[in-house]
Simulated assay, not measured.
Amino acid sequence: MLRTNVVRRTLGAAAVLAMTVGCTAQAVTDNSPAADAKPGSTGSPAAAGTASPAADTTQSPSPSAPATPTAEPSESGEPTESAPPPEVLMERGSTGERVRELQARLAQIGWFDDTPTGTYGPVTAASVKGFQGRRGLPTTGDTDTVTWQKLLAMTTKPTREELTGKAVNKPAEKLDARCKTGRVICISKTTRTLSWVIDGKVQSTMDVRFGSQYTPTREGTFSVGWKSKDHVSSIYDTPMPYAMFFSGGQAVHYSSDFAARGYNGASHGCVNVRDKGKIANLFNQVSTGDKVVIYW
């Protein structure tokens, strides 16, 4: 019994340490949206999939079920045809101005982080797949009519500057109700933006990225527990400048990796900011105890 208690205390201490000493960047995961790969890059792993095992066609169908699927009966008892799948408008290998528009529209809501090329590459497919997954659509990576209409409803017609990658005009962020009173670091996972809000008025906005599916950034309402301008992670021995800790070891901080690689990487749970000037200014304005809201 004594040995068991010692082990439990040891594990408990390790868990607390892991929560409080910080996080750093890691490679992008299958579920992390990313920009199209640069020339010579292999692209995002999200685009690569493995085939499912083939069905065993040697077995006979169960006597209780027909071998061939039939149309389901309607409420009147008459069989009805199932709805056809949506038409695919763009897919891997597609090229043209419509693909460029797709990329520019995805950039508006934070799902594409590179210059629109007009080529539907593997990471454009991964970006579409991420967009689909967050909205409950089949994650095919192909842009079908349903996906396209959903994207059109959430974005605006790209300008010439957006289509050439010279600007990204993100739609105005709809603040969560929790962000409309007091001093709040308001963070949207949908648009991947951080807004500094005072009494419902947005003071500044900046791009952010989050943890991977294995080390996700927590969601909810928190408060800034402490600040560390020149913080260095004791787990990964990497800099975390302008760190503002809000939940254990998770903090909002500047990331040189995010500045260099964009969404091709991810954090270990922290909220990364890539604009050093903006995060430095935010660090000077935020006080311990200010609210932090992270939401979809």
Rank of each mutant, 00 (worst) to 15 (best):
M1T: 11
R3C: 09
T4Y: 13
V6N: 14
R9L: 15
A15L: 15
G22L: 00
C23R: 14
T24H: 14
V28T: 15
V28M: 14
T29S: 15
D30L: 13
N31I: 11
A34Y: 02
D36S: 06
A37Q: 02
S41Y: 03
G49H: 12
A51P: 07
S52E: 13
S52L: 15
S52N: 14
A54L: 13
A54E: 12
A54I: 13
P63Q: 06
S64Q: 13
P66C: 07
A67I: 07
E72C: 07
E75C: 11
G77N: 08
T80H: 05
P84D: 09
P84W: 00
E87P: 00
V88S: 02
M90K: 04
E91S: 10
S94V: 05
S94I: 01
S94M: 01
L102Y: 04
F112Q: 01
D114Q: 13
G118V: 05
G121L: 00
G121C: 03
S127P: 00
S127F: 00
R134D: 10
G136T: 01
Q149T: 06
Q149D: 07
L152T: 01
M154T: 09
E162I: 09
G165L: 03
A172R: 14
A172H: 08
D176P: 03
A177R: 13
R178A: 14
R183M: 02
R183K: 07
C186H: 02
T190N: 09
T190Y: 05
R192F: 05
T193E: 11
T193H: 11
S195Q: 10
W196I: 03
I198D: 15
D199Y: 04
Q203G: 08
S204R: 08
S204Y: 10
S204T: 09
M206S: 15
D207C: 01
R209W: 11
G211H: 05
V224P: 12
G225S: 13
H231S: 01
H231N: 05
S233L: 06
S233F: 03
M240L: 07
M240I: 05
F245N: 04
F245M: 07
S247I: 07
S247F: 12
G248V: 10
Q250V: 09
A251P: 02
V252E: 06
S256L: 09
D257I: 14
F258P: 02
A260I: 06
A260N: 14
G262T: 04
Y263D: 15
N264L: 08
S267R: 03
C270M: 06
N272D: 15
N272E: 13
R274Q: 14
K278F: 08
N281Y: 12
F283T: 07
N284L: 12
V286W: 02
V286I: 05
S287K: 15
D290G: 07
I294A: 01
Y295H: 11
